[in-house]
């Protein structure tokens, strides 16, 4: 883990070792990364695989991190691309999108499972970018600025994609009820 020190400028603290610094990054961003991966893949095991693969990629590419974007958006970008790769492989194999039956702790419990399953089904039918913008903003709580930096689009574009995606979902939502 020799190159971690150059990668982790946002948390660069001289008193901790590079390995510990890398672990700190996982402790700081890991939970949200797991959630983003799960909401793209619908499977706990695949989400964990995606997070692991992302940290390996971060470790390999640590020399190329120039500090221009924040570490979190850089890491999310790698994670989302990893999720896209897994989804494409899955589509090539002809596998259906999986919704994991594993027990998941929900941050809010006022919404019933039927609605969550319906929304997840509707999200599966969306194009990759629309699904990602919606997921990052509505589920994982990223701002339009963070989404724009992560996906390499403008903030206005992020706002527009979210609005048009929600309009599309709104029509299907009513029909499905």
């Amino acid at each position: 883990m020799q190159a971690v020190a150059t990668l982790t400028r946002p948390v660069n603290r001289p008193e901790i070792s590079p390995a510990a610094e890398f672990e700190l990054l996982f402790r700081t961003h890991g939970e949200r990364m797991k959630s983003i991966a799960y909401n793209h893949l619908g499977s706990v095991s695949e989400a964990e695989d995606a997070v692991q693969e992302t940290f390996l990629k971060i470790h390999r590419a640590s020399d190329t991190y120039n500090g221009e974007s924040s570490f979190s958006t850089w890491a999310y970008r790698i994670l989302i691309n990893t999720c896209y790769d897994i989804l494409r492989k899955r589509r090539r194999r002809g596998d259906e999108e999986s919704i994991d039956a594993n027990p998941i702790e929900r941050t809010a419990s006022t919404v019933d499972d039927a609605k969550r399953i319906m929304l997840r089904r509707l999200l599966e039918s969306l194009p990759e970018q629309r699904r990602t913008v919606f997921t990052l903003f509505e589920i994982d709580g990223l701002s339009h600025a963070e989404i724009a930096e992560t996906l390499g689009i403008t903030e206005a574009n992020s706002k527009w994609i979210l609005f048009s995606t929600k309009k599309q979902l709104q029509e299907q939502w009513r029909k499905s009820q």
Binding site: M1, F22, E23, F26, G30, E31, K34, S35, Y38, N39, V44, E48, V51, Q52, F55, L56, H59, N102, P103, I104, E105, R106, T107, A108, S109, T110, V111, K115, R116, M118, L119, R120, F134, T135, E138, I139, D140, G141, K166, L169, Q170, W173, R174
Partner: peptide
Amino acid sequence: DWNDISRTAKSMQTTWPSDTLWPRIQRAI
């Protein structure tokens, strides 16, 4: 409907205990 979608989406934020994930990542690295 608009708010229902947002509420449902927010409830989909997921978390689960994964004590083995970090050791797995460490081993892989």
